[in-house]
Design a protein around this nucleic acid. Structure first.
Lengths: 236, 236
DNA sequence: TCAGTTTTAGTCATTGTGACTATAACTAGC
DNA sequence: GCTAGTTATAGTCACAATGACTAAAACTGA
């Protein structure tokens, strides 16, 4: 790698290096209330700069990899999961993001469905954190997470993205809990139901979720497709 | 530059190179109807690949330049203008965008106010084109322009961006013409007026535009700030 | 002075939405 | 087996936003 062996003079003239990072969101029941809350996995830095601090999963872009493939690989390597939603967030290229060299990071954000296996996929250097209790991260990663949260909330409020947090079948209350967790608000169940039922991408199934200590709710299914990013446009 | 002197084997292992491109929009009266239409400047390629074809203005990222600075420089070098609005569009990184090497392009899009000077800033290798009549461009630049158009229309419909096409003072009819040109629709003047007057960022001035052959319209002023991209967030 | 033009104000019906009430359908505990 | 507790689901009401439309106001040019 030319960046590790370069001296200061060489780094001045070398082109900015290119990295891919990924902000990975999942919902997980809070220990306290049991309601779902937003979590994301971070990786501990094992070398300078910012050695010991937590950072977003990422790494250099391989020559034969597309950008979303690199982001998916990040995701799989840190969580063992495949994304149910993946979208480019932003390219961060400020001059002093890293103290040692000029790095341009193309950041993706993803939603995953947390299985028991995935959240157990932790180690000394990979840990899940509540999105609202992160502490100080390496580089400009706090700002990146803030922006990813802003985008997630925007997409949730205007787009049809909540379903990617959930499995194939879900109740309307589960969808509402996603909204309440991510947007940190309380929503009226009756109005929320009316709103969701007006969107054509939600299909009623004949099944009901049994086992609760109350009237069994109907199960629904999401039939829509993800948005139309340049990455997803060609695939029909 | 290591990319021009590299042979095939070296290109396989070298990191993907990084470029900045810019989609620059301006409104200009159509010759036929006199109504404003959307135009953008392109640059003729003077070397392979795609030699002779038209392409988006762009170039490599200088070591000491931030991403929006590089985009602004593109813009100034091809149009002689400063952007009234500049926003990151997307990072395009497909494996085969360029037939000769792997290039990742971080693309910005901009709005400029066309002065007479600017549109005269054409040459053999720089020309303005109507956005709906571009022909075949180099690389994946047709897809990039399509996506930029989609973003522009979205921002126009939901955000407060139309005013960056106009000068400091404008009539509501001029704003409406921006919407009609970009979205390619007809809008009822009375309803449009009501809609605009409901947004608090538009300030009524005491001035009127004289000289038309009809009732002189009041002049307005835009008092809002651009959005909150990561690039613009720190600047208060 | 009048015809032609655009600006500006206002009405009316429809739709979307927040607040709220009421009933339905289940479980748990007695 | 009955009842209280809980959530699901349906519906009402007032209000805001919006599309279609009518009409008056204020200028120019003939």
């Amino acid at each position: 790698m030319y960046t590790t062996s370069a001296n200061v003079a060489e780094r001045q003239t070398a082109p900015p290096s290119l990295a891919i990072s990924t902000v990975i969101f999942a919902l997980r029941p809070s220990e306290a209330s049991g309601r779902p809350t937003l979590w994301l996995p971070l990786v501990r830095r094992i070398r300078e700069p910012f050695k010991g601090l937590w950072a977003l999963p990422g790494g250099p872009l391989t020559h034969s990899e597309s950008l979303p493939d690199a982001a998916s690989r990040n995701l799989r390597e840190t969580t063992g999961l495949a994304p149910s939603y993946l979208e480019q967030l932003y390219a961060f290229g400020g001059l002093h993001r890293s103290p040692t060299q000029r790095v341009v990071s193309i950041v993706y954000w993803a939603l995953v469905q947390p299985t028991e296996a995935a959240l157990a996929d932790e180690s000394e250097n990979v840990r899940w954190f509540r999105a609202d209790k992160l502490g100080d991260l390496a580089f400009d990663h706090n700002a990146i997470v803030d922006y990813a949260l802003w985008r997630l909330r925007n997409k949730l409020a205007y787009g049809s993205i909540a379903y990617h947090f959930l499995g194939e079948y879900f109740t309307l209350a589960q969808v509402r809990e996603v909204y309440e967790a991510v947007l940190d608000t309380h929503l009226d169940p009756a109005n929320f139901r009316r709103h969701i039922k007006a969107t054509p991408e939600i299909e009623e199934t004949g099944e009901y979720l049994q086992g609760g200590k109350h009237r069994p709710p109907r199960l629904y299914r999401f039939t829509g497709r993800p948005g139309l990013d340049p990455d997803n446009r060609s695939t029909p």
